[in-house]
Every structure is written in structure tokens, then in C-alpha cells.
């Protein structure tokens, strides 16, 4: 039981961070399908730069930097250049997945995966018995994730910047009519999202693990995307959804350890995804009452005026 709890926290943290990134993008009216790509560039850059400099902080800083550049690029393509948001997002994901795999070969001359010595600090230490062992393995990013979520909530729901962001996503004309440039606000939202994805990726590669593996995000960016929808575009809702998906993942991992003898491995690996699909269906039912998100969807296009 304690094992599941701790594993849940560890699986959920990257999901929650990336889902929070997604909430920023969604609220600004962007269906950000590049989350997966930004997550893996974050994971890779942290390992690559962290390994080269020996400093995990520099690694994360570099990861954030790379993602800011990529996010700005994404903004430039979908904004000024007018490309389709979904296609460009998927393109960003492809660049992330392919680019990191290529860089792995080009820089480290390796295929598949690399191990690293850099690792995120673990603030809770010295517990050597029971579940405490796993708790003491939780990285600092896991501990500050709730803080990030709370900050996101305050920024999105209780700040003027949040109001502008929501206006841009829901009804760009409203923003323009009060002198807010929707394009700039979208850029800001995407930059925040990019930075959060870098943290999510870093937690994956040097928080929960100590390596980088090709395609190690393994669809987590998309699950985070689903968590945003499931959480009705609300930072707390998305975080809870992320936590839930982390829980599903944990059950998958734990039962894999415990019951592999009797149940086919593939079936166990399926569990998180089955739960995810079920949860999305449930979320859809529930969300029908909350028009907020639907309004946001409808207003993705600019109203003609």
C-alpha cells in the first residue's frame, strides 16, 4: 500500500508538471500537442548538459532554455506563420522524439539509452525502514510540484495576467478590445508551458531515474494532455487528474511486480491506458455540465467581427 502511494507520487509528478503546462496553453486557446516533444527534450537536455557540467542545476537550466526556444518557435509557426495548431504540435513532438534520439547517437555515440551520475537532490533522507525508503527517494521536484500547481492556480484564477490569458483563449476579440495583444499573451503562455515541460522531463530522467532512454516519455505528454481535458482546464483539476493517472500507472507497476506469474505482462501494461480511456469517458460525461471548457473550444477560431 505504502509502496503504491510512493510510486504514485513518483509517477504522477512529471504528469502533473506537464499537465500544468498544458493548462496554461489550453487556457490561452492552444491545443498543445507538442507537450510530449517538449517533455523529452527537457529530459534529454538535463541529462546531456548535467552530465557534461556535472551540475544538475545547470542541466535543468539548459533544459528550460532549450524548451523556451522550441516553444517560441512553435508560437512563431502557429501564430505569425499561421500553421495548424494540431499539426504543428504533433510536429514539435516528432522533432522532440526524433531529435533526442538522434542527438543521443551524435553526442554520446550510443543507441537506446545512457546512464548519468547527476541526479536531483532528495530532501527527505535518513529513513531506512518501510515505506520511508521510497519516500526518501522522492526528488525535490516531486516535493515542490504541489507548490507549482498552487502557484499556477493563483496566476490563472486570481491575477490579471490570468484574466488576460483566459480572455485570449476564450474570446480573443474581448482581449483585443481592451488593448491586449492576443498573440503576445499566447507566446507568454507557451513559454511558461515550455519551462514546465522541461521540469517534467527533468523529473523523469534525473528525478525518478538516472538515465535517458529513447522515447522514455512513452506517451506521458499525451496523457498529460488528457489530464488537462479531464481536469476541465483547471490547474487543480488537471493536477488531480495527473495524480489519478499516476495512481493507475503505479497499480500497473506494482501488479507487474506482484502478479506477473499469473497474468500476461502485456495485460498488466495495458491497465493504465484502460483506466485512462475510462477516465476520459467519465470526464466527458461530467464536463458536459461545465460549459467553460466547451466555450473555450468553440472560440479557438477568431470571431468574425
Amino acid at each position: 500500500m505504502e509502496q503504491i502511494l510512493a510510486t504514485t507520487l513518483r509517477s504522477a509528478a512529471p504528469l502533473v508538471l506537464v499537465a500544468t503546462a498544458g493548462v496554461f496553453a489550453f487556457r490561452a486557446g492552444i491545443f498543445h500537442l507538442g507537450l510530449e516533444g517538449l517533455m523529452i527534450t527537457g529530459a534529454f537536455t538535463t541529462v546531456a548538459v548535467g552530465d557534461a557540467t556535472g551540475s544538475v542545476e545547470l542541466g535543468i537550466l539548459a533544459a528550460v532554455g532549450v524548451n523556451l526556444v522550441l516553444s517560441a518557435l512553435y508560437w512563431w509557426v502557429i501564430g505569425p506563420l499561421g500553421a495548424n495548431v494540431i499539426i504543428a504540435g504533433l510536429g514539435l513532438t516528432s522533432i522532440g522524439l526524433g531529435g533526442t534520439a538522434f542527438a543521443l547517437g551524435a553526442i554520446f555515440d550510443k543507441r537506446g539509452s545512457i546512464f548519468t551520475d547527476v541526479v536531483l537532490p532528495r530532501p527527505v533522507r535518513g529513513i531506512t525502514s518501510g515505506a520511508g525508503v521510497i519516500v526518501s527517494e522522492l526528488s525535490i521536484l516531486v516535493w515542490i510540484t504541489p507548490l507549482i500547481v498552487l502557484t499556477a492556480w493563483v496566476v490563472l484564477r486570481r491575477s490579471r495576467f490570468g484574466l488576460r490569458l483566459a480572455a485570449v483563449g476564450e474570446y480573443p476579440f474581448a482581449a483585443r478590445s481592451v488593448g491586449v495583444n492576443p498573440s503576445i499573451v499566447r507566446l507568454q503562455a507557451l513559454l511558461i508551458a515550455g519551462a514546465l515541460c522541461a521540469l517534467g522531463g527533468a523529473e523523469l530522467s534525473v528525478g525518478a531515474l538516472r538515465n535517458f532512454t529513447e522515447n522514455m516519455t512513452n506517451g506521458r505528454g499525451f496523457i498529460a494532455f488528457v489530464a488537462v481535458i479531464f481536469g476541465a482546464w483547471h490547474p487543480i483539476g488537471a493536477a488531480l487528474a495527473g495524480l489519478f493517472f499516476g495512481f493507475a500507472d503505479a497499480i500497473g507497476i506494482q501488479s507487474q511486480i506482484n502478479i506477473t506469474e499469473r497474468v500476461p505482462r502485456e495485460f498488466v501494461l495495458m491497465i493504465p491506458f484502460v483506466i485512462t480511456i475510462f477516465a476520459v469517458w467519465l470526464g466527458g460525461l461530467w464536463r458536459r455540465r461545465s460549459l467553460e471548457a466547451e466555450a473555450g473550444y468553440a472560440e479557438l477560431r477568431e470571431p468574425d467581427y
Binding site: 480572455a167 474570446y171 474581448a174 478590445s177 470571431p303
Partner: peptide
């Protein structure tokens, strides 16, 4: 300016 089309976001 008061616009021809409403300029307040509906969910606000």
C-alpha cells in the same frame, strides 16, 4: 468603445 458584438468573455 462599445462594440457591435459583445466584447466580454462569456465564462467570466
Amino acid at each position: 468603445m462599445v462594440h457591435q458584438h459583445f466584447s466580454l468573455p462569456p465564462s467570466f
